[in-house]
Design a protein around this nucleic acid. Structure first.
Lengths: 210, 210
DNA sequence: TGAAATATAGCTGTTTACAGCTATATAAGA
DNA sequence: TCTTATATAGCTGTAAACAGCTATATTTCA
C-alpha cells in the first residue's frame, strides 16, 4: 500500500501567493495539493465533499474573513487542520484564530523552512507558530492599560455590570447607596473613555479587565 | 565560567505539588529553584528584587488568581517566562493565560517528561502545550453558538451597539425607524438570553460574535 | 504629617433602554 | 407554492442610564 500524502488546500486572495506556495510545496512532494481558492465562499462547498487534512488560510479575504472561515471549517470538518498564513501581526488576530480552532499561525515573512516545519508540526497535532508570531505572543505589551487603572471597588462593580446587574441591584448586593454605585459607574465610564455600558464592556473585554 | 542554570520559581497553593515539583526538578539539576510560593501576593515582591527566568504558575490561587498574576508578572519582568501549570482544562482559561503573556500551559496530569519538555521549549522562547491541552485547543467544540444564530441585520446592529451607538443613532445610520432598531435589539437580547446591553456584550464577546 | 486618591452619599434633569403588545411587506426555504 | 423567517413600523409605560453638579469620611502614600 502506498503511503498516502496528506491532502492540502490553500485559501488566499493573492494569486501570486498561491502560485508560489504551489510550486514550493509540490517540489517537496510531501503533500497532495488538492485545491486553491481565492475566497472562503468557494472553499466551503469544496470542503463539504472533499476530505482536506490541512488548510493554509489567509486572514484577509474578500467576503467572509479568515477568522470566521476558520470557525466554519472546524464546524464542517473538525479533523481538518487549519494553519493561518498571513501578514497580520496583531495579537488580537492571532488569538482570534486560536479561539476559532486554528492549529497555528505562520507569518508570510517566514522562511520556507519555517513554514514547512510549522506544517509538519501542525500535521502532528501540535500547535505551532513561526518565530515572529511566537515573540509577539510572549513579549506581551501590557503597558497601556496601566494608564487606565481601575480601583478595587471599580473593578468589582465593573464585573457586576458585565454580568447584567443594574445599578439598584449592585447597590443592594454591596450594601451601598444607589448614588454611590452611580458615581462609580460614571468614573469607570470616564476612565475607559466609554460613551455607555455597551462600549464600556467592549473596551473592558479588549483590555482584559473582565 | 560556570554555565549558570536558569532560575525557576513555583507558585501553587498546594504544598504537596510544590514538594513534588521541587524534588523532581532538583533531581535533574537543570534549574536553580530560587523560590516557592503558595500565593501571588508573596511572589510579587520577590519578583521585584530577584531575577526569575521561568515561573510555574497555578491558575487557582487564594487572592489574586493565576491569570491576573501572569499579567502582573509580565508587567514587572517581561523577560520572565510564565508556564501555566494547572488542573483546569477550560478553553477560555487557557486562552486567557495566553492573552496575558504565558508561554505555555501544562496540565497537572501530564507526565514528568512532558513537563520537562515543555519547560525546555518555553526556555527556548517557544510557546508550548502539554498533549491534552493541545487537543483541547485544536478540537474546537464550536457547536452551541449555532443555536443562537443572529441574522445579518441583527449582527450589524449588535456590532454598532458594541461600539457605543444608541438606538436613535443606529436608526439614523441605517435609515431605519427607531422602533425597528428597538425591535431588533429586543430580538438580539432574547436570542442571547441577556437581561440588558451590558450582559449582551459580555455574552457576544464570549461567543465571538463581535 | 499632609496631600492625594478612594469610597461614600446626595440632588436634578434628560435621554435611553426595555417590556409588552400589534401589524405588515418581503425574502427564504421546504 | 405556501409556510416560516426576516425586516420593517408603530404605541405605551416604567425602569435604568447618564450628565452635571456638591460634599465628606477614610485610606494611602510620599
Amino acid at each position: 500500500m502506498l503511503p498516502s500524502k496528506p491532502t492540502l488546500a490553500i485559501v488566499d486572495d493573492h494569486p501570486i501567493i498561491i502560485e508560489g506556495l504551489t510550486k514550493l510545496l509540490m517540489k517537496k512532494e510531501k503533500f497532495d495539493l488538492i485545491g486553491s481558492f481565492t475566497n472562503g465562499e468557494d472553499f466551503i462547498p469544496f470542503l463539504q465533499t472533499n476530505p482536506v487534512k490541512i488548510v493554509l488560510l489567509d486572514i484577509v479575504l474578500p467576503g467572509i474573513d479568515g477568522m470566521d472561515l476558520c470557525k466554519e471549517i472546524k464546524n464542517i470538518s473538525p479533523a481538518t487542520i487549519v494553519l493561518a498564513f498571513s501578514n497580520h501581526q496583531e495579537r488580537s488576530g492571532i488569538m482570534k484564530m486560536l479561539e476559532n480552532g486554528a492549529s497555528g499561525y505562520v507569518l508570510k515573512d517566514a522562511s520556507i523552512d519555517e513554514l514547512l516545519l510549522c506544517i509538519d508540526e501542525a500535521l502532528n497535532g501540535r500547535i505551532t507558530f513561526s518565530k515572529a508570531i511566537n515573540d509577539i505572543l510572549t513579549q506581551a505589551q501590557l503597558k497601556e492599560n496601566r494608564l487606565t487603572r481601575l480601583t478595587k471597588r471599580e473593578t468589582e462593580i465593573l464585573k457586576l455590570i458585565a454580568h447584567g446587574a443594574t445599578t439598584p441591584h449592585i447597590a443592594e448586593l454591596l450594601f451601598l447607596s444607589k448614588f454611590t454605585v452611580e458615581n462609580h459607574r460614571k468614573n469607570i465610564l470616564q476612565k475607559l473613555k466609554a460613551k455607555n455600558v455597551a462600549e464600556l464592556i467592549s473596551i473592558a473585554n479588549q483590555q482584559g479587565l473582565l
